[in-house]
């Protein structure tokens, strides 16, 4: 039974991950990422890490991905491919490519070091043994204790990082809001003109392309 669940979850996870990068419509990309995350939660369950599985679903599928879905559903109408948008973008294409390549290979190297560093010892083992009780492996009590003793520093640094990110987001959003409020009196209708002019050029390009 656990084999069936494992392979099912693993296949869904890999298919979901592939779907994220291969699907054309960003909305479906996000949905396949959700599938991927839920499949990962299933794998965590198989490893008797109930809390991690629940957190995986609550935090990633339930909070982070909800925001992704929200944003993509609002502004990603799917009529324009992501690649096209990038091609037209202001960021220089080669710079973006090399940047992505560098970041990707750095992540790969990091993962490989982490994987081979453990010597893949866990592959042959059966995972944590199942104990019944409130403080067994994978329960909230077990992980809570680890977080507040052995991994206290990492835990606190991570939470501090998140706090900084949250404060930064608020500051950025607040600044843009203020600019929007101040802009109309200064520009005296210029933004409206810009907005109105935003449509026609694209149409003009199309017409020219058709000719």
């Amino acid at each position: 039974m656990s084999y069936v669940i494992f392979f099912l979850a693993a296949i869904i996870a890999i298919a979901g991950a592939l779907g994220v990068v291969m699907l054309r419509d960003p909305f479906f990309s996000v949905l396949s990422l959700v599938c991927h995350l839920i499949a990962l939660a299933l794998l965590f369950l198989l490893l008797r890490a109930e809390l991690i599985a629940a957190v995986q679903v609550v935090v990633y599928a339930g909070a982070v991905m909800v925001l992704y879905v929200f944003v993509v559903a609002y502004i990603g109408d799917g009529s324009e491919r992501l690649a096209d948008r990038l091609r037209r973008g202001t960021v220089a294409q080669p710079l973006l490519r090399t940047g992505a390549l560098l970041a990707g290979s750095a992540l790969l190297a990091e993962l490989l070091i982490a994987l081979t560093g453990s010597g893949l010892k866990a592959v042959e083992s059966a995972g944590a043994p199942y104990h019944k009780g409130p403080r067994a492996f994978g329960t909230p009590a077990f992980i809570g204790k680890l977080l507040l003793t052995r991994f206290l520093l990492a835990f606190e640094i991570a939470s501090f990082l998140l706090l900084v990110a949250a404060v930064g987001a608020v500051v950025l959003a607040g600044r843009r809001g203020r600019e929007d409020e101040e802009a109309p009196p200064q520009g005296a209708g210029a933004p409206a003109l810009q907005g109105a002019a935003g449509g026609p050029p694209a149409g003009g390009e199309l017409v020219e392309a058709a000719r």
Binding site: A54, G62, T139
Partner: peptide, 17 residues
């Protein structure tokens, strides 16, 4: 479950979809 309410919240997270 040892995760009790978190189970509830995970399913309400999926219910959102």
């Amino acid at each position: 479950l040892s995760i009790g309410p978190l189970y509830l919240f995970s399913f309400s997270a999926i219910a959102f979809y």
